[in-house]
Write a protein that binds this DNA or RNA. Structure first.
Lengths: 192, 192
DNA sequence: CATTCGTTGACACTCAGTGCCACGAAAAGC
DNA sequence: GCTTTTCGTGGCACTGAGTGTCAACGAATG
């Protein structure tokens, strides 16, 4: 019950922040492939070995930044009242994730742009997203949905998610992501 | 004019077949991660260096086996009469790809199972699929569709594709993939 | 003050992937 | 038919990602 987190935990968080910021900064300038882990750890001031204690791969240091969006979506679906239709839960989850991107605009936009534009990063991100899909589908099944239908519904929702992200991040002058999501909702709603 | 392919091209094809079969065989037994490129080339009887002349990565040797499905889908959409709705073209493309999987059951099933069950392979496959999505969306835009709508439509179609593949490949006793696709059609048709 | 636990850095190692060059065979030119 | 170019291949060396191991250090606990 201390303040909130133990001293060790806070130190860990500092290292994570230092590494992610160093990676994001360097990769934004030099590109992902030409940036080595040695450069990142040199900027962050930790050893190469420590990097891989915090992140499973060079891709992970950026993909991890978007991991909470998956948690957020799953939590939103889980918290949704069970007597409402499953489709409403999915739509709310999408809205929560996109709103979060909009609110943390500066950082989210930098990360998303880099991830979507870099094939190896995109690959790892899509793999992660596939895990989200499994989790979301499981939640829908727990509500009584058919497994195949649930898997496809989750897949459609995530397809809408990345479509919005792409359109949002790849525009020179980013439009309101919520407006984009509304357009996507109109299209996908009858299929959920 | 010659038979069909030059002698050199046929020799190339032999090497490709030898490597893919060696990789598929070995990975099915030992798993993807624990199988080294050195083992594959030892079985196939070529040098390590030659492997990377044919495939960009260790993942590529399997993902490449599914590449023609993307080509098939794009060709099907492109060949579809322009006066019919875009959604019909997408549905037909999906049907063409799934039918092809059903027809080449033995090999397709082996590959798909391995790819879907192995995270790094899945990642590369999804990245490839993302390229298919861009191509399909471009074809739809060429038909006069709205870019955002087209991108989402292609994403939904591919979500249905993998949902069918998953259900098909992960079952102990595979059901008819066409029947699965019909169920998926019912769900996604109103969103295209 | 002594001990234990967790984090770190350093070293060594495997393996993926690439650049470079030399060799051998097939194809093209004289 | 013989040279010459071309192309595919193998061998080698190198960079960089990722992992196992161990010793050192600091903080929490007795």
């Amino acid at each position: 019950m201390k303040p909130t987190a133990s001293l060790a935990d806070r130190k860990r968080q500092v290292v994570v922040d230092e590494l992610t910021e160093a990676a994001l900064q360097t990769m934004a300038v030099k590109g992902f492939e030409t940036t080595t882990v040695d450069e990142i750890v040199a900027v962050a001031g930790v050893s190469r070995r420590t990097f891989f204690r915090y992140f499973a791969s060079k891709e992970d240091v950026l993909v991890q930044l978007l991991a909470y969006l998956g948690d957020l979506m799953q939590a939103t679906v889980a918290a949704h009242p069970a007597d409402e239709p499953a489709s409403a839960a999915l739509l709310e989850a999408l809205a929560a994730a996109i709103e979060d991107c909009r609110d943390s605009r500066d950082k989210a936009l930098r990360v998303v742009r880099l991830v979507l534009a870099t094939p190896p990063l995109l690959a790892r991100f899509l793999e992660r997203q596939s895990q989200w899909q499994s989790g979301l589908a499981a939640s829908l099944v727990a509500r009584g949905a058919d497994p195949f239908h649930a898997d496809l519904s989750a897949g459609i929702a995530l397809a809408a998610f990345v479509a919005v992200l792409r359109r949002w991040a790849e525009a020179d002058e980013p439009e309101d992501p919520i407006a984009l999501l509304d357009r996507a909702f109109i299209q996908i709603a009858p299929a959920l």
